[in-house]
């Protein structure tokens, strides 16, 4: 097995003990501290990243499971010039207060929006609450986060319609 992980589109050598938590590899070896550690037991969701596009709590994933696969962290959303629409919505609506839970929430929201775009209709508020329920936030009361995801979805759908039209 090639001990390499493709992180945010760039290949990273990941020749560390196979049972290293992916969260530790990302933070300490790849220097990607956007991924946060809140509990190390998969309960808070702060360490969520996308593994081949699907959200996982990276504190519970061994690095070996990510060898040869794609990992997306919060640093992989948007680029230097542009924010991802979901980042824009979180920013505009003040969905972040202290911000510690936000990186994990953003990548989960991105996965949810990608699925919604693939099926062609936006998520409902209830769906957003259900799909993001693995994330804890102590500051916001969640309402602005839900509104931000719905707004990002709406904006994304508008773009899609423009492309189609």
């Amino acid at each position: 097995m090639n001990r390499v992980i493709r992180i945010n589109g760039t290949e990273w050598p990941a020749d560390v003990p196979p049972t290293t938590p992916l969260s530790d590899f990302l933070r300490e070896h790849a220097g990607l501290t956007g991924t946060k550690i809140g509990c190390r037991t998969g309960e808070c969701g702060a360490c969520t990243v996308l593994l081949d596009g699907r959200p996982v709590t990276s504190c519970l994933v061994w690095v070996a499971r990510a060898w040869g696969r794609d990992v997306t962290t919060v640093e992989g959303l948007g680029d230097d010039q542009r924010l991802d629409p979901v980042q824009v919505a979180f920013l505009e609506l003040n969905a972040a207060q202290c911000g510690f839970c936000i990186p994990g929430l953003l990548v989960s929201a991105r996965a949810l929006l990608d699925e919604a775009a693939a099926r062609g209709w936006p998520p409902t508020a209830l769906e957003v609450r259900e799909r993001l329920s693995g994330h804890l936030c102590r500051c916001t009361g969640y309402q602005k986060i839900v509104e931000a995801v719905l707004k990002a979805a709406e904006n994304g759908m508008k773009e899609m319609r423009l492309e189609l039209g």
Binding site: I37, L91, I102
Partner: peptide, 21 residues
């Protein structure tokens, strides 16, 4: 007027450095 937090760009980019970072 509603205003985004001035440090929100860092927060949504994962660039805010907390002590453990």
């Amino acid at each position: 007027r509603p205003w985004p937090q001035i440090d929100a760009v860092d927060k949504v980019r994962g660039r805010t450095r907390y002590a453990a970072d």
